[in-house]
Every structure is written in structure tokens, then in C-alpha cells.
Simulated assay, not measured.
Amino acid sequence: MSGTGNKQDGRGRFGAMVSGLAVAVGCVLFLGGFAWAAVVYQPYTIPTDSMSPTVRPGDRVLAERIDGSEVRRGDVVVFTDDVWGATPMVKRVVGVGGDKVACCDKGGRLTVNGTPVDEPYLDRSSAVSGDGKAPASPEGFSATVPRGKIFLLGDERATSLDSRVHLQDAGQGSVPLSAVQARVDAVAWPMDGMIERPSSFAALPGGVSAPGPLPLQLGAIVVGAVLIVCGALYGPVAARLGRRGASAGRTRPVAARLGRRGASAGRTR
């Protein structure tokens, strides 16, 4: 009996150790994921429909804090510029320093350095151009982006107040890279997920930016939560199974004694 008890005690101690380790690792991943996300990301609420349908008024987005040097064409950025009103704004970068941005070509598309750019994030169904789609901009324009600056448009081209409104300003509506505060990575509420980098800009020099670390952070949080729950449940589950095993162990000897008594009675008869 003592040997069996020692084995059970050993298994119990090992299980408790694994359970404690799971909870500890889970806490590190869970809290670490939240802390990492808090350092890297800034939440914003979209105030207008200038970026519809990508993001809509009232959407809560997560924007990765970045330096202006990390900006690439196709990024949706948060920036503040005194000329634009000195309030945080959200627009899409369509041109960087040295680019000539124009609209529209025969297909109604935006061009960057003469290369047509397909923009799947636009709603081009409201009017008709030569190819049966609305143009990428209701009014034509052309601008050359100075070095160290970016050219920005809203995805709702019919109503967005963007670089097109400031074409007569110095820099032809461009904004300094230093004005950029963050790059929008995902829509947190409603939970629409990650905002993809437009593949149409990938073929241009410089390519597109890499996705932020948000998926890794969410993965760490989820794995941490699972480990914490599983580790916390081990104790109650193991105790309950132990009580069941002890009860079954007490029942078997009684049944055996009753069986021997019945057999003895049968021989007597």
C-alpha cells in the first residue's frame, strides 16, 4: 500500500509542478502580449467617412507607431499637419518623395510615375468611365512630390479633403514625413481584422511595408490565456479524479468479500 501511495504522491507533485509552470508561462505570455501591444500600437477612432469603405466613421483602429522613414506607398497613416488643421487625420499614402502622381488614365486609374495603379479598396461603381468604372478621382490632377514628403488621398475620393485640396499650396499638397505618427494596421471594432497592404504598389520601387506584429501579439495573448486556464483547472480536476479513484478502491474490496461469502455459502449448501 505504501508503494502505491508514494507513486500517486509522485504523480501529484509532478502534475502540480507542470500546472504551476503552465500558469507562470501563461501569465508571461498574456501580460507580455498586452504590454508589447500597448507599446507598439495606438488606438484611434475614425471621425469621418473620407476613408470609406476601408474604415468607416466610428471604427476603432489600431495604428502602429512608426517613424516617417518607414512609410511606403499604400500605407494608411495617421498624421498631423498645421496646414491641414493641426488635428490627427487618416489618409492613404499614394506617392512618396520624387513621385509624379496623376489621375486619371484612359481606364480612370491613378498613375504613379506613369504606371497605372489598380486600387481595389475604392468603390468605383457610382459613375461610369470608359471601362465601366468610376474614375479614381472625380477631378483630374497632377503633382510632383518633393523629397521628404508624401502625397495622401482618402479612399472615398468623392468627398475626401486630401492632398488634392492643397495642390496650390507649397509642395503641391504633400505632407512632411515628420508629420506621420502611426500606420493603421487593423480595425479593432467592429472586428474587421488586418488592413492588407495593396499589392498594386508592390511592383513600384520601395515596395510596400511589412505587416505589423499584431498577429504575434494576439497569438501570445491567446496562448497565455489557454495555459492559465488549463493550469488553474488541473488542481480541481486532479482532486476530483483522485476522490473517484479512492472511492472505487474502497468499493472493490467490499465486493470481493461479498463474492467470497457467496461462494462459501454455495459450497455449504
Rank of each mutant, 00 (worst) to 15 (best):
K106R: 12
S160I: 03
V28C: 11
F151E: 05
V222P: 04
F30K: 06
R244D: 12
R269Q: 13
V90Y: 00
Y121P: 03
N113D: 14
G207H: 02
Q8T: 11
S163Q: 01
V145K: 01
G97C: 06
A202G: 11
F201K: 00
R261A: 14
R261W: 06
T115N: 10
L204H: 04
P88I: 02
P215M: 10
G68R: 09
A158C: 09
G231L: 00
D49H: 07
G193L: 06
V229F: 05
E64T: 09
V117Y: 03
R92P: 01
G212P: 02
C103K: 04
L227Y: 00
L233Q: 00
P47L: 09
P236T: 08
D162P: 01
D123R: 14
P53V: 14
S126T: 11
T45P: 05
F151I: 13
L153V: 09
G249I: 15
R73V: 08
G266S: 15
M194V: 15
G207S: 05
G10L: 04
V237C: 03
L161N: 07
P120V: 14
R60Q: 08
K91H: 01
A127N: 06
R267E: 11
R92C: 07
I195W: 00
A102G: 02
D9E: 11
G148Y: 09
A210G: 05
G32C: 08
G10P: 02
K7C: 13
A225L: 12
D162E: 04
F151D: 08
I195A: 05
P120E: 15
V90A: 02
D162T: 10
G85W: 00
V184A: 02
C103V: 12
S50E: 10
G114D: 03
T144E: 12
G154T: 12
A143N: 01
R124P: 07
S129W: 12
G26W: 05
S142L: 11
T144D: 13
R250K: 09
R13A: 04
S264N: 13
E119H: 12
V40I: 15
A35D: 10
L241K: 03
L29R: 12
I228M: 02
F151W: 04
R56P: 07
S174Y: 12
A265V: 15
F34R: 15
R260F: 12
V71D: 11
A179H: 08
A203S: 14
P57N: 08
V165H: 03
A238Y: 01
S142R: 11
D192V: 15
R147Q: 15
G173N: 01
R147H: 13
L110D: 04
R157T: 08
I195C: 03
G206Y: 01
A210C: 05
N6W: 13
T48H: 08
A186K: 08
R109C: 10
V28S: 12
P120H: 10
V112S: 14
A248S: 07
S200M: 09
W84T: 06
G140P: 02
P53Q: 11
V175W: 00
A22C: 10
A37R: 13
P215N: 12
G206E: 09
V101M: 01
L153E: 01
S19L: 05
D123W: 07
